[in-house]
C-alpha cells in the first residue's frame, strides 16, 4: 500500500470508529437518558478513538521504501476523482437530510435539538467516508498482480 491508500484506509477506519463512539455516547445520554458514571464510563469512548487514531498514525507514517515518494501523478488523478465523487455525494446527502425528516415527520413535525449536530456531523462523516472509499475503490480496481 502506498501512502495515499494508507491515508484513505486509515481515515475510513478513524471516521467509522469516531462515528460509532459518538453515536453510542449520544444514544446513551439523549435517548436512554443515562449519564456515564465513573472515569471509565466517561472517557472510554474517547480512549478508544485515541487508541485507534494513534495506531493508524503510526501505521500510515511507516514508509515503504527510504526513497518513497509521497504522491505521484496517478495519486493526484485518483484524489481529484474522489473529490468529485465526494462533492456530488455531498449534494445528495444535503438533499436527503433536508427532505427525509419532512417525509418521515410530516410538514409540522419536530425533532429534538440535540439531534441536529448529530445529523450534520453524520452527513459530514458520510461524505468524508465516500471520499476515502472512492480513493480505495480506484486503487483496488487498478491493481494488478505485482511483485515486490
Amino acid at each position: 500500500m502506498n501512502r495515499a491508500q494508507k491515508n484513505a484506509l486509515g481515515g475510513l477506519i478513524f471516521l467509522l470508529s469516531t462515528f460509532t463512539m459518538m453515536s453510542y455516547v449520544f444514544f446513551r445520554i439523549f435517548v436512554l437518558k443515562k449519564t456515564p458514571v465513573g472515569f471509565a464510563g466517561r472517557f472510554l469512548p474517547l480512549a478508544v478513538v485515541i487508541l485507534v487514531s494513534g495506531t493508524l498514525l503510526v501505521w500510515t507514517l511507516k514508509r515503504q521504501s527510504p526513497r518513497e515518494v509521497k504522491e505521484d501523478e496517478r495519486d493526484k488523478l485518483i484524489d481529484n476523482r474522489a473529490a468529485m465523487a465526494a462533492f456530488i455525494s455531498a449534494l445528495i446527502v444535503f438533499l436527503a437530510i433536508s427532505g427525509i425528516p419532512r417525509l418521515i415527520l410530516g410538514d409540522n413535525g419536530c425533532i429534538p435539538a440535540w439531534s441536529l449536530p448529530l445529523i450534520n456531523l453524520g452527513a459530514f462523516i458520510i461524505v468524508a467516508m465516500i471520499y476515502f472509499a472512492a480513493i480505495l475503490v480506484q486503487y483496488f480496481s487498478g491493481r494488478g498482480d505485482g511483485d515486490k
Binding site: S65, G142, G146
Partner: peptide, 19 residues
Amino acid sequence: ADKAGVTRQTIIAIEAGKY
C-alpha cells in the same frame, strides 16, 4: 518506482496496462 519518482502501485498499474 524510486528511480522514476512514483509509487510502486503506479508501476504495477502501468505494467498491467491499467494506467
